[in-house]
Nucleic acid binder design. Sequence first.
DNA 1: GCCGTTTTCGGCCCGACTGTTTTCAGTCG
Length: 575
Amino acid sequence: MARPNEVVAAALQEYADLISITGGDAFRARTYEKAARGVAGHATDVATLDLKGLEQIPGVGKSTAEKVVEYLSSGRMEALEQLRAKVPAGVRELIAIPGLGPAKAMTLHRELGISSMDELVHAIEAGRLSGLRGFGAKTAANILHGVEVLRHSGGRVMVSTALEVAEEVIAALSGLPGCEKCTYAGSLRRGRDSIGDVDILVAARESKPIMAAFTELPLVGEVIAGGPAKTSIRTTGGLQVDLRVVPPESWGAALQYFTGSKEHNIRVREIAVRKGLKLSEYGLFRAEDDTLLVSETEEEVYEQLGLPWIAPTLREDRGEVAAARNGTLPQLVTAADIRGDLHTHTNLTDGVSTLEEMLAAGRARGYRYYAVTDHAKDMPMQRMTDAKMLAQRKKLRALAGDGKMALLHGSELNIDPDGGVDWDADFLAGFDICVASVHSHFTQTPAELTHRFVKACENPYVNIIGHPTTRLIGRRKPVEPDWDAVFDAAAATGTAMEVNAFPDRLDLPDELIMRARERGVKFAINTDSHSTVHLDMLRFGIAIAQRGWLTPADVINTWTLTKLKAFVTAKRRAA
DNA sequence: GCCGTTTTCGGCCCGACTGTTTTCAGTCG
């Protein structure tokens, strides 16, 4: 069950799509898109707002606010219903096909009565598109291909997968003569939790040799488009990679531009326009005479616009431009701030590395403390027993010798369907710190899930809720309790929410981090490592935490050991 | 439809590439 803001945003986005498809005013369509984003990103539940309150949301004016009120009170939006009556739902689904936009979708519907992806495929195969204005043989083939891609991949890949591809391309291009700089931009640089395509940027005088080398890389499955400034390929694995080559002096402007997000760039360009300037990927220009002002570094571009440099992880048009203007950008948490990992496993349960190996890897990272949190006894497949857990603790205490890295003994407890955990208070009291996670019964009702999480937070020995939504990116949907109620319980009880750094989890997701932070929750950025190499996954968790605007003060494993221990004992004492 | 160190009207980010166009619309990011 999605929160009202998301339901309303979806309705507004649908309305915007239908305006575009029916050939309505493009600016009106964009207005509703903006409003949808504003509503989705708004911290307050829209269901609790009146007309006046709604109009405070960026991009929402009187007309949109009235539609939202109508929708929330009656479940219907008359204007939306009218457009739905004109355009079958399947027509809207067509614009998800790469290369097919609202105008072409409407042409297909108007001229051929096509109103679903299947009908479109059949029409193409039957040759019914020939003779239709704007639909040549090439377009028909591209559409078929687009449908294939869409059905096959669903579009997005894990950030770790995209990073591997990016690093392979960068390694190959960086060595070319004439390549002065090469890096990745786009959603990968912004640290999103999944990646639709990889954007690579190169600074070079001559683009041709770079483009040629790019299309010949072994990972290239097909070349989608190729020009002097931009070339797009799809890898053999199905991931799209766009390469842009810019002159070296345009590097900063180009990096800013291709990092996005699109919405952030629109916001920044609006500032440029108001100052009588023009910002493109080639630089910041004076509008009246096209004089180049700056372009070499991102810092210069932002500075010339009267803004401090904004971290890529914040560039989502979620208020970062206003914060930059007011000097209230957050001091974001970085990997260097992390003093220890608080969720790790060993081969005592389902890990693959030994206790000694894991501790050595933690020391190698320079951690000041390190928690071993193997699975608890209620997870039958892990075969944990009280005796094994106590034996591990004894061993750990014996290994705590060098004084540089403190060793914490913990466990990843299971939150049972009713919110209870594996052991009673007496046994739990022996641990230094505990994570508690949901590992089963994902299909409970939202009310049951809410009760379950809240009760877990109220347990004095539960310090961190592990991978709270339990989502597996591309494989398992998140559970959906009333998160605001859960976060309130976490904040009130001194229970941290985990930002699990594993690339197929990245859990909490960034939107929920923002909501939790608003409600005063603290966080722990952990890797959930099952092997020594997993400790490096921290970087992905840091990116997600930054996208949630977290500062070191919000993150308990940036704190000193003394402060961390106080966090644990304060909760126990309060009980 | 929204919005305002230029504004309550007249703008709304900007450029690249494709396909089908004979000068440009559509799509994408």
